[in-house]
Design a protein around this nucleic acid. Sequence first.
DNA 1: TAGATTGTTAATCGATTAACAATC
DNA 2: TAGATTGTTAATCGATTAACAATC
Lengths: 206, 206
Amino acid sequence: MMSEKTVARLSLYRRLLKLFSDENRHEVYSHQLAEVVKVTPAQVRRDLMVLGYNGIPKRGYEVAKLTECIDKFFNVSKGIGIILVGVGNIGRAMLSYFREGKPYINIVAAFDLDPDKIGRVISGCQCYHIESMPKFLNDNKIRTAILTVPVGQAQGVAEFLIQNGIKGILNFTPARLKLSADVFVEDVDITMHLEKATYFSSIVTK
Amino acid sequence: MMSEKTVARLSLYRRLLKLFSDENRHEVYSHQLAEVVKVTPAQVRRDLMVLGYNGIPKRGYEVAKLTECIDKFFNVSKGIGIILVGVGNIGRAMLSYFREGKPYINIVAAFDLDPDKIGRVISGCQCYHIESMPKFLNDNKIRTAILTVPVGQAQGVAEFLIQNGIKGILNFTPARLKLSADVFVEDVDITMHLEKATYFSSIVTK
DNA sequence: TAGATTGTTAATCGATTAACAATC
DNA sequence: TAGATTGTTAATCGATTAACAATC
């Protein structure tokens, strides 16, 4: 089983490789990736080993082939469809964010309760009533959802999601979801991140 | 020096304590906090030890006093002012998010380049031209900034921020900032989080 | 008292790094 | 060849947990 940190780093390497590719660089060394991601070159080599693609001593890794391997690891070719639940401020920001320049992950539908939002197209994404979600998920074989509902509704909506086949949730609410162990929850706890930033910015006086 | 993880957990404990307080619970055990945060009770006790407030065997921790200690740890009493740079979709979402129910952290000003935004009040926050930032930071002794500019401008704006006294950045851009070591950067890498969620939701079939 | 929880340390665990033979 | 980088493992490091005496 792949560690969460390795997966997170592979996502970063992927982005860096795109930059190298844009600059027409054909090879990259482990220490070049390591510098940006702030790990040792050995760690990078270790991460890349799991992809089953080998670098060449003295030449490094071929940018194109390595990109292909990481894309394969993340199943890019399939084109991943996800849904978003809760079209509030953060929900709309995410619809806009993932509309641009994320070619393989697409938010294919948004769901809400607010009659003002239902039926509208927001940042290119159709907004439906949450009641129509079960049928939608079943028809489209969606496994991942972005959760941007108000905190009080988070647990209930999350349970509703997994009842309908969702296996992974990107949780932007501050709620700590209690769900069965076979569901993956990635928390993005914005308040916590900001409290960390304010805490450390006040003590780094030195 | 406090570990980042400990600070992150203290932020979570703080929120949980507020919930306990709302329920009129006066005491809390380490294992009750541990369950929600998904660590062992020993870890919770260890985290709380650093606050210099002791629990009582058999009775646990007093919710009110413990809250007070964590608030003190995060310097709540001071009322922390932060700024936001880049009033795009995510920037506006953050302005709205931190306007509600975050009593001690306030976004006191937003900055942008877009003439359409400058001079407006967005989610209760005044929007200024980025040129007026140095004076504002100096007058108001701000140390923390939320960075929500387009990725291509992130590094430049971040350098501008630290030139003007910012010591901590909450970075919502996918850029990996290269800054001096005495600046704290908290990355919120949304694409990476989503890629993690999609990866793990596709392999938890079991 | 008996039983449960605390503060605290030693042991454990897992992730990271140093190191090095192999290789281009 | 000489020098640099790779794949890989043993050593290191730091964070977490188990364990237990002290305590209410």
